[in-house]
Nucleic acid binder design. Structure first.
Lengths: 231, 231, 231, 231
DNA sequence: CATGAATGAGAGTTCATTCAT
DNA sequence: GATGAATGAACTCTCATTCAT
């Protein structure tokens, strides 16, 4: 995949023989390209963190990456594509974080573990939250391509799956489970927004505590429902 | 039409009548200025509703106000300041909307009434939500003055007071009450974000239903706590 | 018409009284604006003559006009619009030139007079020919708006009307007359292209002489047809 | 596919057989280079047909040729030079087309046959017309070298020779013949411009018909002159 | 007070051409 | 010879803000 974005329609080179020097070179070039894409993404992240989404222009990104503005287009077709890549990668890290949260035996503990992991990721990485909001920000008519949007949505949904699975252990129907996970997701998003905007201070509250309380109440309620259903 | 509005505004300042000529002039000048600020804000709101936050340029606002671009700066120091004023006015309308919600007898109904009013205002006026997010959005290099920020915060808090009052009727301590209102506020914000960004569709859920459910659970829980405390 | 291109939606100022200072100011401002438009067009023409159509960038035009690039957009909405204005004005001069050609008594002389006037205008003003070709150059998908194109077409056609009128004096049907004027137009265009590109030298010919010969043959033929039709 | 073409082209140079090794190598290198130039020209023509003159970037040409952008510069010094080569080749095809037109017995028919062949080539291959105009177009800052220009002129003139020969059969002097062929050439160029730019529609005329009429009149007139000269 | 022309910086993007590998 | 990453200048166009009038 060392093909530049612009010249990607080229055919693969002819196979020669033996250890295939061509392949080796292609692989090396490939990895170099990937490395540079990574460096540009790092620069983009840095620019975005320093300057905000609006301020992080292609020029700013290029400068930070040590490139001329035009050079970036060899790696990413547009500014949007850079942000999509950044977000995709962010969601990957989020997923890893959630997957890494302990898989407690009891359903209640598992819900708390997984939901808190989701929450904590964004609480501890506020820039990733910015990134996550990028796609949402305002009414965005000219956004990403439809497929890319769908893919990012799917990635986001996947990070909530462990929580959904834990919830379903309470014996919920699929529909009820979806309602609960949506509601919980909304709750966490709201808390994150309050943290992010500093508005939580306005209430003199501590967000993690509020989430913990919310999760307690949620699991308690579900526990009650489950036992009454069993009766 | 715009011109005639401006002209009649000017006429309004023509009435002369008072104790000290200086004060009268100052007052008159003040009120005329306030009136014109108001007209500009109307224009800004219209522009912003039509064109969105990015699209509502100073030119667009000035055109709608019947002013030249430069004239605006006699009333507002910057684009940012206009938006802050708009937000203040938006919060005023929000407050009116919440205050207008029926004051049910039962605490549970009152919580539902007031909280739903808050929620519905933003659900039905997504542009006001945009406005609300605008100043909080991400990393803001050039923000508002500290006082302005505090004032807007206070206004926001005031719109939640009726809900807080209703909650306190369940016999909560002040601290518990604050925690509940914060939690509820976060929940609503989260749902609004999901609506606003279209992400709620991703879960196939209906936001008002989710809120109703949340309010049911909340009031039920508080009711349970209240009766057990009474016992 | 002192309204800038961008803010042209403004209403007219309120009428006051007497000689109407507002109107006077508006008129003066108007004429200043027209003057500046003219200066920009001059600069555009100069840029275009020096650098060719591709090379005459907005920057180049602005520099020559003594403006910053952005300032031009207060007078013309786009690069295309500048060229359209340039072409429109060129066609106006062409029309004046053709209309000013003597109105000979005999049809043959009138054809020669009017057609030669058309031809000579472009022969002596090769830059105007460039301009005329601008709209035609290559396959231009993104060109002028449809209305503008139609208007310029009409202007062009109007410059050929005197020739068409003279031709019709030979007793031609409307259809025959249109065929003759088209054919003659094509002939002149062809000769102009040969002059313009220097290709006429390749044949060692003198274009005005060739046109004169062509007109002689044309009028002679039409004269023969007319007399044989009369017999 | 492009690759394999290139590879087989390389193989073609593998045959070694000759008197002096140096010469053989030089010749071989030469022919291989010519072959590759041809392949690049094919790609350039394809790009240009698909994308137009503006759209056919070096990247697009290189991609179609199976080369990297930089490699092209080993065969052509600039984009301009590619287009010059393309034009030369286009003129070759034009010549073949004209030469292939039937050699009628009567002079009048031969004129019509050869002239129509010229005209039809460009009518049916509008991109070749674009190419033809490209180098002549307006004020050209960076033009061709003098020799190249002369060579292309000669090629163009050669395509008109059959028509000139047919005209001379009417008993014209060399000078008269040259005047007639120039005039006819101009006429056809004019018609082609009108077709090409869609301006012919403005007159509601059909170009081939106009040309046929023009040729009828031309040959009739020459026939008349010839017979009167014979008398 | 109001005008509106003008600035100046900046946006995203394209591309012929170069040159180290 | 060929690569293709990179340059650097260019493109059109937008906009908040300033300032002479």
């Amino acid at each position: 995949m060392n093909k530049s974005i612009r010249d990607s329609a080229r055919e693969a080179g002819a196979v020669v023989n033996g250890v295939r020097a061509d392949d080796a070179r292609a692989l090396r070039a490939d990895s170099v390209t990937q490395l540079r894409r990574g460096l540009i993404l790092d620069a983009a992240r840095a620019a975005f963190f320093e300057l905000g989404l609006e301020g992080a222009s292609m020029r700013a990104i290029a400068r930070r990456a040590g490139y001329s503005p035009g050079a970036i287009y060899g790696y990413f077709a547009s500014r949007e594509e850079i942000y999509a890549a950044l977000l995709g990668e962010s969601l990957l890290r989020l997923k890893a974080h959630v997957d890494g949260a302990p898989d407690a035996d009891h359903a209640a503990d598992r819900v708390k573990s997984k939901a808190s992991a989701f929450f904590d990721f964004y609480r501890q990485n506020p820039r990733d939250l910015d990134l996550g909001f990028y796609l949402f920000q305002g009414v965005r008519p000219t956004g990403l391509t439809r497929e890319l949007d769908a893919q990012l949505n799917a990635q986001l949904r996947a990070t909530l799956q462990p929580t959904a699975d834990a919830l379903s252990a309470f014996g919920l129907t699929a529909a009820a489970c979806e309602a609960e996970v949506t509601s919980l997701f909304a709750h966490m998003v709201g808390l994150l927004v309050l943290i992010h905007t500093g508005r939580i201070r306005m209430f003199g509250q501590h967000a993690p505590q509020l989430l913990a309380r919310h999760l307690d109440q949620l699991t308690e309620r579900l526990g009650r429902s489950a036992s009454s259903a069993a009766a």
